[in-house]
Nucleic acid binder design. Sequence first.
DNA 1: ACTCAGGTATTAC
DNA 2: GTAATACCTGAG
Length: 288
Amino acid sequence: MEEQQYIIENQNSFELRDIFDCGQCFRWNIQEDNSYTGVFDKNVINVNKEGNKIIFKGICEKDIKPTIEFYFDLNRDYEKIKSELSKIDDNMKKSIEYGKGIRILNQDLWETIISFIISANNNIPRIKGIIERLSEKYGEKIEWNGKYYYTFPTPEQLRNVTVQEYRSLGLGFRDIRLYETTKMILDKEVDLEQMKKNKNTVEVREQLLRLSGVGPKVADCILLFSTLKRFEVFPIDVWVRRVMNDLYIKNEDETKVSKKQIEKIAVEKFGNLAGLAQQYLFYWRREA
DNA sequence: ACTCAGGTATTAC
DNA sequence: GTAATACCTGAG
């Protein structure tokens, strides 16, 4: 396929590091020139910032412009969101200053489900490694610039993979979760297409929680980071627990702070932008 | 050798 | 309902 290119100028709220290292995605890697290259859907894209320009280039299945605009959520007014959240308190203001270039990507639902199942009780380098090996082994090969890239495998491409094969890729105890969830989705025991159409977040969440290996935290990550795009959810992991305790609860032992307590504060303070607030706080607490 | 990392499922009060 | 516990793996 032919390489395509798309350039935008003077785009606000767009920093490569903030977008790719804020914890929402696993398949974007920094290059020697500080650009990032990643695979999503059937696309291999490299993004670089030069002055006031952002340059996207690579192999794109469809027209690159709408593909990029959708995936990078370019039609949403992050400046407005940030200014609203900044009014809440100084903590939010600081965290937003730190992560001012964050954008929440529109990632494929299926890929997001599997990726965050793999993320459970795991560390980032290992999560990334597992996902790469999965893609290399079962995904579709795409050549670009003399290098090979691999799409994330579809449910169909994982249909006949055994638990043992997952284990050999380093999935660990998540092998059975992947196996069961893939089966449930292939059998439409949980119907992803139906889920995409459903506007009721509570119902969608219930559906996600039925999947093997999907608990409350993973479900919320899927709701926030996939094309489901629910900004009102508030995924609570160790970092969010830490930062919420530091800032608002101040219990001497953060591990003793209940989820309910955190959720209550999140809803009160951040309302229907809780997911975004969570992302700024998470990134700030973990990286700053 | 031992701890820890983007939690979940299971079991037991 | 809510609390304790095991769980692959590999890096530090």
